[in-house]
Computed example of a mutant assay.
Amino acid sequence: MQEELEQQLRQATLACLAQAEPLLRGAGRCRAQVRVLCDLRGKAAGQAVWAQGETRIRYNLALAKPQPEAFIQQTVPHEVAHVVTRLLHPRARPHGPEWRAVMAHLGIADAQRCHSFAVTPPGHSQRRWPYRCPCREHQLSTTRHNRILRGERNYLCRYCGSLLQRV
């Protein structure tokens, strides 16, 4: 199933790029060569990346699996529009009017900046550590707790300004 979904995402991306080709040709640009990866994690549905001389579109399979049709209809054009917009207008804002125009060309009239897919909580979340000051108790993340243990940083209460002490 996963390989099938990855293939569907690749095919949809190529089809979307082909649909945008007239825009690129009209501006004297070549069709984008895009590498499609399905390795994105977290809350983002997709990501357009320009690194090491190549253009990549990354998709989050965990968000795509529960609703593949909606994911393909929304996320694929969204990310392809980023690639096309960058080729046409290198200094355009990520979700600005140029991007919206490309989205309209791809058939998405009401382009949205963020997806509405259900995001399941990650497999693990950071533990919270109790700290106190004279006015209240605080819950610090593991990252901040470790910085205190290593002596890299001390944290102060935002309200009373006192140094936080581990409970």
Results as ranks from 00 to 15, higher is better:
1 M>K: 07
1 M>P: 02
1 M>R: 09
3 E>Q: 15
3 E>G: 09
4 E>L: 06
6 E>A: 07
9 L>A: 03
13 T>F: 02
16 C>L: 00
19 Q>M: 10
20 A>Y: 00
20 A>E: 01
24 L>V: 04
24 L>T: 05
25 R>C: 03
27 A>E: 08
34 V>H: 12
34 V>K: 10
35 R>A: 10
36 V>Y: 00
36 V>Q: 00
36 V>L: 01
38 C>I: 01
43 K>H: 13
44 A>N: 08
49 V>A: 07
49 V>Y: 04
52 Q>S: 14
52 Q>A: 15
53 G>S: 07
57 I>V: 10
63 L>I: 05
65 K>F: 09
66 P>Y: 06
69 E>Y: 02
74 Q>M: 09
75 T>K: 13
75 T>I: 06
76 V>S: 03
77 P>V: 01
80 V>A: 08
81 A>R: 02
83 V>W: 09
83 V>T: 12
84 V>G: 10
87 L>E: 15
90 P>A: 05
91 R>N: 12
92 A>P: 10
93 R>D: 12
93 R>T: 12
109 A>M: 15
110 D>N: 11
111 A>Y: 08
112 Q>R: 15
113 R>F: 01
119 V>W: 04
124 H>L: 15
125 S>G: 13
125 S>N: 11
132 R>M: 07
133 C>G: 03
141 S>D: 01
141 S>V: 05
145 H>D: 06
147 R>N: 06
154 N>L: 13
156 L>C: 12
157 C>L: 05
157 C>E: 01
161 G>Y: 00
162 S>V: 02
163 L>V: 11
164 L>K: 05
166 R>L: 07
